[in-house]
Design a protein around this nucleic acid. Structure first.
Lengths: 153, 153
DNA sequence: CAGCATTCGTTGCATCCGCAATGAGGTCAA
DNA sequence: TTGACCTCATTGCGGATGCAACGAATGCTG
């Protein structure tokens, strides 16, 4: 009988742990955004980027807030339809789109941003003793190419 | 002109950072699982749990490897169809399902587990100076109820 | 200027997802 | 034993997702 499988502890596997923790941190806030404002996570990222970057293209969103372009495009469309975002063509390069907050979008962000800020502060307080280590670790993961190791062929 | 929006740095927002880092860590390995073995992340979690827990029910998977029950059910079905997993009824309680690895499933895990183990070791090596802080921070997030803060009504 | 490659955003499609409803099985008390 | 209630797993459904294909616009080379 083959009981020869190597031991493996999923609960210590870093990709798993990070995924579960990330879902957990996002869930509470995301639920609130959705129920109170009808905003999804993708839409929220778009709004936040517009709030401090002004006029932005889809590919800008893709690069800056880590949204795959079709996801960014659809999130932007929903926001336009909801009246929070205005979409114009870029006169210098008509392939590009210029997304920016409408007045009602700016008003919305006046409510949303303090919520996020408070949540961030709460999280930082919770992990205060380990915050530096956490951030350093995340920076490391983001800087490295994690798949480039020795197992490739 | 309303430039009165509060500053907010998405790139420092912990739910965002964790989500992006988690996607990054999972992506490389997940791509490989999919291309070489045709296995998704959900299916992989099921397999790993079966590899060291023996016979398991769906609700077991839900609790242990953080898979929503319909997701666990569908992942299990795909694995049964692929021949890696055997599904029997629990004779003591016929509501429950008993999932276990087939021989070919065990063979598969003989290939998969070392891959995951090597990846984990590589990640631990990368963040070695901050590993303790990272794990402590993740434990904190998992222990607390992150949405329970003062902003609720 | 003509021709070809590249960039950008959208959309079609197959799949996946979560939630709620369903149905089969089990428990408990009268 | 019967009937009300609970637990499991599956499935239907609306919506989201990622990828590839596409059309429009631009850049590049000769």
């Amino acid at each position: 009988m083959p009981t020869d499988l190597p031991d493996f502890d999923l609960s210590r596997f870093l990709p798993y742990r990070l995924t579960v923790a990330a879902e957990r941190l996002s869930a509470a806030l995301a639920r609130r955004y959705r129920s109170e404002f009808g905003i999804s996570v993708a839409e929220w990222r778009v709004l936040v980027h517009l709030a401090d970057a002004g006029a932005v293209s889809i590919r800008d969103l893709e690069a800056r807030v880590h949204l795959e372009k079709s996801k960014a495009s659809r999130a932007a469309s929903r926001l336009v339809e909801a009246g929070y975002v205005v979409k114009t063509a870029n006169p210098d390069d008509r392939r590009l789109v210029r997304l920016s907050l409408s007045d009602s979008g700016r008003t919305l962000m006046t409510d949303l941003l303090p919520l996020a800020r408070a949540y961030q502060e709460r999280l930082e307080y919770l992990v205060a003793p380990h915050l530096d280590g956490l951030e350093a670790a995340l920076d490391t993961f983001m800087a490295e190419e994690p798949g480039g190791g020795g197992t490739g062929s």
